[in-house]
């Protein structure tokens, strides 16, 4: 119980008058992969987007309760959203590279945060981020080509590199493989396994197999409630809750 990275306590989310999340409490450990699973519309993405305050973009969305990242409250008006987001990277469902060059895609974050003082430093960050995202060898000769010219899987890894480049501690992944083919998915999954060594990763996925493959912890959401959370092995072999049991055995979903 020592290295708790994110601590959520009775988080409620409303879209207008409709409640989307009911009292979610969760403890996410450092340098682990936590998978959020559940049928679609169960609120797992909503919860994910609370952690880096992406829900701020939706005007009718109201969040209450408490989420602490490194013991610092983030559901508060005083939170510096910008520095929060530079600490928590995010990878989206559909790869969304900027329509700029591959280099600029990765360089954007470090540039706006003033992480670098010289061109050489910037180049180094871009290269190392691309390497960490396992993309460097594929694109090193064409860093000036537009990011949108890459294949889907490459684009998603570019987005991961873009997130890594600002040196985050946590990476949120919102169904990162749902738009990719199986081979690209396998590459990304491998990558997630490597990234675990340096980052705390939370991944939303609709594929139970994927959750089983990449995560150490799994949380099962249903109708806006957190039903069960625990070691991935346990959840998939011997869940406590019958709903979880039903879901993983494919009775609904």
């Amino acid at each position: 119980m020592s290295n708790s990275k994110i601590l959520a306590n009775s988080v409620d989310v409303y879209y207008g008058s409709k409640q989307a999340l009911f009292g979610i409490s969760m403890d996410i450990k450092e340098k682990e992969v936590t998978a959020l699973i559940g049928p679609s519309g169960c609120g797992k993405s909503t919860f994910l987007r609370c952690i880096n305050r992406m829900n701020d973009l939706i005007e009718i969305c109201k969040v209450s309760g408490s989420i602490k990242v490194d013991n610092e409250e983030i559901i508060s008006d005083k939170t510096d959203v910008v520095s929060l987001r530079s600490k928590i990277g995010m990878v989206f469902q559909k790869p969304n590279p900027f329509p700029k060059s591959i280099f600029d895609n990765v360089a954007y974050g470090p540039t706006i945060h003033g992480l670098v003082d010289s061109k050489n430093d910037l180049e180094e960050i871009v290269h190392s981020s691309l390497k960490k995202a396992g993309l460097f060898d594929e694109v090193k000769d064409r860093l000036n080509e537009p990011g949108t010219s890459l294949s889907g899987g490459q684009q998603q890894r570019l987005c991961i590199a873009r997130a890594i480049a600002v040196n985050p501690e946590i990476i949120l992944m919102d169904e990162p493989c749902s738009a990719l083919d199986p081979i690209a998915t396998a590459i990304i999954e491998e990558l997630i396994d490597e990234l675990r060594l340096n980052y705390t990763i939370i991944i939303v996925t609709h594929s139970m197999q994927q959750a089983a493959r990449v995560s150490q912890k799994t949380c099962f959401f249903h109708l806006g409630e957190l039903i069960e959370t625990g070691e991935t092995n346990k959840i998939f072999t011997n869940p406590d809750n019958t709903k979880t049991q039903d879901y993983i055995t494919g009775r609904f979903g």
Partner: peptide, 18 residues
């Protein structure tokens, strides 16, 4: 312009104006 582009920028810590 698709909102995902803006989200991508916000996610790496850009301000809304940026």
């Amino acid at each position: 312009v698709p909102p995902s582009i803006k989200e991508g920028a916000l996610a790496v810590g850009a301000t809304k104006t940026q």
